[in-house]
């Protein structure tokens, strides 16, 4: 039996793609923002986004074999 079901692996892949775009965008946008409150929201998003992507990456790595 494979580690994960095919459907869930594909969903994790979709989420990883989505989150990668989000993280990249948040990082690129950060220097363009002038409002400190918005800057703080973006900073937090970069932080959680990075951790979330690592978690998704771990799952994907296990789904490979």
């Amino acid at each position: 039996m494979p580690t994960y079901a095919l459907h869930e692996t594909l969903e994790v892949h979709e989420m990883a793609t989505f989150k990668t775009v989000c993280l990249t965008k948040s990082k690129l946008m950060q220097p363009l923002v002038s409002d400190p409150a918005l800057q703080e929201i973006l900073r937090q998003d970069v932080q959680t986004g990075t951790r979330q992507l690592q978690e998704l990456g771990d799952l994907l790595a296990k789904a490979m074999h």
Partner: peptide, 8 residues
């Protein structure tokens, strides 16, 4: 066994 997400 009405649903088999692992055995497609």
């Amino acid at each position: 066994k009405w649903f088999h997400p692992y055995e497609l």
